[in-house]
Amino acid sequence: MNDFSYTQATTAKEATGRTKDQPQAAYIAGGTTLLDLMKANLQEHPQLVDINTIPFKGIEQTKDGLRIGAMERMSDVGENKLVLEQFPAISESLLLAASPQLRNMASIGGNILQRTRCGYFRDAAFPCNKRVPGSGCPALEGDNHNLAVLGTSDSCIATAYPGDLSVALAAFDAVLTLENQKGKQRQVPVKDFYLLPGNTPQKETVLEAGELIVAITIPAAAHAQRSTYLKVRERSSYAYALASAAVGLDVHGGTIRSARVALGGVGTKPWRSPEAEKALVGQPATEATFRAAAAAALRGAQPRKENAFKVELAQNTLVQALMKVAG
């Protein structure tokens, strides 16, 4: 880890002022992603700005749903009664992620910005278009068993966001409030926050330089209340998803009135599937419907040598999750 200076920021303005003065500076909240990457010499920053005392806090009921401050910790949000009651899938996505220790540390704003687990990105000895633009992508023909089958490009097939929370947030129409260096706030839906790799895999989100995540708002809905997050991994706990599904259904008289579907572990970004949702709405809540929705979700998949299993795995994960909420 390179040497760096450290300062605390007690307001958003102070924090963004620091990164205006020192564009290479990074914000630190929980530190669980940032320090991991800095120790591996994958990121270097001359200054860290500690944003833990900025009052981006609280889990509040609003007229339309919930508002959660970006500085809240994964464990506190995951076990919060309001989140559990109104968004079980979001609670489960948090509590099935990482470990209890990491969940006590990691802010949800930081979780949204965690970076890929692609082995080539994480080893500075290899080329990587995400880390060194234009250097190449050994994953295309190499060890790609944990990489994406949806949204890939010839430049990058990494699951850029390897986590769980944003998959559930994308499914349930969560919106991020961001604040830039001019003190101006804007709203960005989570499903639009992440970018496809295309020819610029180094650009992963729409976040501007120095912009902060302030809060997440999630609209209450019947399909959100009847929701789940199913995560399939190589071991039963404390591992990243090979495939995961955040789903919610509003079923009346056996017919699906509204549906939300997002997949994790298989896309280059948290993969909201309007195709699957379209295949569900207006149909009977049966396994046959769920199978058709799963096929629709994976129709555009571009599997590689080692990750071809994910096409079937993701479909089965999605069907199982839908069966669970259909009850």
Binding site: T10, K57, R73, L82, E92
Partner: peptide, 20 residues
Amino acid sequence: SDLFPDAQPEASQPSDGSRR
């Protein structure tokens, strides 16, 4: 589930960061 085998837990209190 193994997360909460018996009951849903009470809401935990978010930690309040210490201010200088």
